[in-house]
Computed example of a mutant assay.
Amino acid sequence: MIIQKSYVEPSGGATALGKLYLVGTPIGNLEDMTYRAVRVLREVQWIAAEDTRQTRKLLTHFDIGTRLVSYHEHNKNASGPELIRLLQAGDSIALVSDAGLPAICDPGEDLVRMAVDAGIAVVPIPGANAALSALIISGLPTDRFAFVGFLPRDKKPLERELGTLKRESGTWICYESPHRLVKMLSVMAEVLGEDRDICLVRELTKKYEEAVRGTIAECLEHLDEHPPQGEYCVVVRGGLASEDQAEAAWWMGLTPEQHVAKYESEGVDHKEALRKAAHDRGVPKRELYNLLHRE
C-alpha cells in the first residue's frame, strides 16, 4: 500500500524529494491555461515536454524561463530514469503534453508509474481535456462514460474492438484523425448499426469549433459534403442492455443460417438480412457472410 500526502513535508530530517506535477495545457485557446499552471511551470526546476518546440511557444507566451527537457515515446526508456534521478535529488518537474492533460494516451503514464514506485509525490494541476469537453457538449448521457483513446487502424481489430464496445451501456469517447474518420465511422455503422447516436467534435476551443450531432448514417452523409478537417473527438451513445436482451431473446436459439432465413421470410432481401443478423449478433457482416458462404 502506498499513501501519498502531496503537501506534507517529511519530518525527522529526511531528505525532501522533488514532486512530479502533471500540468494541463491549452487544447486550442491559450486562455485555457490556469493561473496555477503558469505558477507551477515557473516554480519547478524542470519542464518535461512531449514536443519541446511546441512547449517553448507556450512558455514564451507566458514568459516562463524554466529549463526544458524532452520526454516522449521514443526516448522514454532513457529519459524516464534520468527524470526520476532528478526527482530523487530534490528537483521538482512539471510534465506537459502538446495539448491537454499529460499521461492520457501518451508515455507520461509510464513516468507516473516510475515516480509512484520511487515514492515520489505525483500532483495533478488540472486543465483542459478534449475528451471531457466533447462529452459535456455532446448532448449524450454523462452519468456513465468511458474513454477508449484511439481505436485500432486495421479493419479486423477495429471490428473486434467495436464488437466489445457495442455492449458498453454508458456513453463512450474516442479520438480520431481526419483522414481515418470516415473509414472508422463506416465500420462503426456495420457493427453498431447506422442509427446509433453520435457526436463529432472538432477544433475544440478554437475559432472553428464544431459539434455535429446525429446518427452514424447522418454524420457520414454530412462528411460526404464537408470533408473532415482537424482532429476529432467522437462521442457515442451506449447500447441499452434491456433492448439488447429483448432483441436477443428471439434469435438466441437459432443458427446463423436460421437467423438470416428468418429475416428473409419476412420479405427482407439477402443482403439486408445478413446486415441485420450481423447487427444482432455483434459481428461484422463480412464475417457472417463468409460463415454462410464457405465451401
Results as ranks from 00 to 15, higher is better:
residue 188 M to P: 00
residue 273 A to S: 15
residue 32 D to Y: 01
residue 24 G to K: 09
residue 222 H to K: 07
residue 254 L to M: 15
residue 26 P to A: 06
residue 159 E to W: 08
residue 268 V to C: 03
residue 274 L to M: 11
residue 171 T to H: 11
residue 149 G to C: 05
residue 26 P to L: 08
residue 283 V to Q: 10
residue 159 E to F: 07
residue 202 R to V: 01
residue 9 E to T: 12
residue 227 P to C: 02
residue 239 G to V: 00
residue 99 A to D: 02
residue 180 R to E: 02
residue 86 L to W: 14
residue 233 C to S: 15
residue 131 A to E: 12
residue 282 G to R: 10
residue 267 G to F: 12
residue 120 I to Y: 09
residue 274 L to G: 02
residue 210 E to C: 12
residue 85 R to I: 00
residue 15 T to Q: 15
residue 242 S to W: 13
residue 176 E to D: 11
residue 184 M to H: 07
residue 143 D to R: 13
residue 141 P to C: 08
residue 61 H to V: 03
residue 237 R to M: 05
residue 119 G to Q: 09
residue 112 V to Y: 13
residue 157 P to I: 05
residue 161 E to R: 15
residue 176 E to C: 07
residue 144 R to E: 10
residue 14 A to Q: 15
residue 223 L to N: 03
residue 201 V to G: 13
residue 241 A to K: 15
residue 181 L to Y: 10
residue 238 G to L: 11
residue 293 H to W: 11
residue 288 L to P: 01
residue 87 L to H: 06
residue 21 Y to P: 04
residue 127 G to D: 10
residue 130 A to W: 12
residue 199 C to S: 15
residue 281 R to W: 14
residue 142 T to I: 13
residue 1 M to F: 12
residue 258 Q to F: 08
residue 164 T to S: 12
residue 89 A to G: 06
residue 269 D to Y: 11
residue 187 V to I: 14
residue 213 R to H: 13
residue 57 K to C: 00
residue 11 S to P: 00
residue 52 T to W: 11
residue 198 I to R: 04
residue 254 L to D: 10
residue 158 L to W: 09
residue 148 V to A: 06
residue 81 P to G: 05
residue 66 T to D: 04
residue 244 D to F: 09
residue 262 K to C: 02
residue 126 P to S: 12
residue 164 T to W: 06
residue 234 V to L: 13
residue 195 D to V: 01
residue 183 K to E: 15
residue 274 L to F: 11
residue 91 D to K: 15
residue 278 A to L: 07
residue 133 S to R: 11
residue 216 I to M: 05
residue 121 A to M: 08
residue 137 I to W: 07
residue 151 L to P: 00
residue 173 I to M: 09
residue 45 Q to W: 02
residue 275 R to P: 00
residue 274 L to P: 01
residue 136 I to T: 15
residue 161 E to D: 05
residue 222 H to A: 04
residue 20 L to N: 08
residue 130 A to E: 05
residue 60 T to Q: 15
residue 241 A to F: 11
residue 173 I to E: 08
residue 61 H to K: 12
residue 198 I to N: 03
residue 278 A to E: 11
residue 34 T to L: 08
residue 145 F to Y: 15
residue 46 W to T: 06
residue 289 Y to W: 14
residue 294 R to N: 13
residue 6 S to H: 14
residue 199 C to I: 06
residue 130 A to V: 04
residue 231 E to T: 02
residue 162 L to T: 01
residue 72 H to K: 02
residue 47 I to C: 02
residue 58 L to T: 00
residue 245 Q to K: 15
residue 164 T to E: 13
residue 239 G to R: 09
residue 154 D to Y: 12
residue 65 G to F: 02
residue 289 Y to A: 03
residue 149 G to L: 07
residue 200 L to G: 04
residue 119 G to F: 07
residue 93 I to F: 06
residue 287 E to M: 10
residue 86 L to P: 00
residue 68 L to Y: 10
residue 33 M to C: 01
residue 167 R to W: 11
residue 268 V to F: 13
residue 220 L to R: 14
